[in-house]
């Protein structure tokens, strides 16, 4: 039982990270039907901005909460701007061409950003300060570290904030209507370009938050860190029903849990296999994912 509980905690933590990244994929897909392969790079960039700023703040003797929230806000803002720039440069000029060309442009952007990170930040891992991440609760043999608690609660907060933004605000309304019909919403006075930019910015900001959490929790960031979680989060978005926000969250948690339980009870070697088997099985029975792709109300 203790073993199960511990693995459950591990699974929820990993699932939170996937869920946050998956949201960016799903929001962008919802609004312009593009699988943004460069999304994993926003996650990596967020991790880097976080570590650079956090180390600086710590060296200036700032208290822990200032370091954490300061670097979190800065990284999210930086990645939001980066995503808007990427959209303007690589995707907007191709908006009316075939979906394949935009997809290739996204792949190219991913390679460009990853190599840019390698050239500017080097090939070595960059270590996060570990002073902030020590300790945790111990109940019997079950460990719940403060970091895990931080990750899960921050994810929960961001998910709630995102839901409020999408379903309760004017911007959210504009996003939903642009997702449903770009031309029609433009006719009623919604600025499609601005709305698309905002969607990219929000998705990248969430990925940046995930990047910092991963850096803090696992201890380091590396220029190619965006690739594997990017693929997993993409799978999570598809699993939940791409284009569907609730689906992406559920998908992220499912992939995280499956991975952890497969590694914990079967074999670490095949955990990815199990994650993707679940994906295939779900898509076989529900081709549009768990929540479905075309639930127009919840689509962004």
């Amino acid at each position: 039982m203790e073993y199960f509980l511990q693995q459950l905690i591990n699974g929820i933590t990993l699932g939170s990270v996937y869920a946050l990244i998956a949201l960016g994929y799903t929001m962008v897909y919802g609004i312009i039907q593009l699988i943004n392969f460069a999304h994993g790079e926003f996650f990596a960039a967020g991790g880097y901005v976080g570590v650079i700023f956090m180390s600086y703040l710590l060296s200036q003797g700032a208290p822990a909460w200032v370091c954490l929230s300061g670097s979190l806000i800065l990284a999210m803002a930086y990645c939001a701007m980066l995503a808007v720039a990427v959209e303007k440069v690589a995707y907007k000029p191709l908006r009316n061409s075939s979906r394949l060309s935009v997809l290739l442009s996204a792949l190219g952007m991913s390679i460009f950003l990853q190599n840019g990170l390698m050239l500017t930040q080097g090939v070595y891992d960059k270590a996060y300060p570990t002073e902030l991440t020590q300790g945790g609760f111990e109940m019997g043999n079950v460990m719940l570290s403060y970091m895990q608690l931080f990750i899960v609660s921050l994810t929960a907060f961001l998910l709630v904030a995102l839901n409020v933004l999408v379903f309760k605000t004017r911007i959210g309304k504009a996003m939903r209507s642009t997702a449903q019909d770009k031309v029609m919403s433009a006719l009623v006075g919604i600025n499609a370009n601005r709305t698309i930019s905002i969607t990219f910015a929000i998705g990248a900001a969430l990925a940046a938050a995930a990047g910092i959490m991963v850096g803090l929790y696992y201890g380091s960031v590396r220029y190619d860190m965006g690739f594997v979680p990017g693929i997993k989060a993409f799978a999570a978005a598809v699993l939940g029903g791409i284009g569907n926000i609730t689906g992406a969250m559920i998908g992220g948690f499912i992939i995280g849990m499956v991975e952890i339980f497969a590694a914990g009870y079967i074999s670490g070697e095949y955990k990815d296999v199990f994650a993707f088997v679940i994906l295939i099985a779900v898509l076989y029975f529900r081709p549009s994912g768990i929540m479905g792709e075309n639930v127009d109300d919840t689509r962004v």
Binding site: Q7, L14, V214, G264, S267, G268, E269, K271
Partner: peptide, 16 residues
């Protein structure tokens, strides 16, 4: 146990 290249999360195996 065997882990994959590029893995960052070893919590499941370490719990074992």
């Amino acid at each position: 146990e065997h882990v994959n290249q590029g893995d960052k999360d070893f919590s499941a195996i370490l719990t074992k």
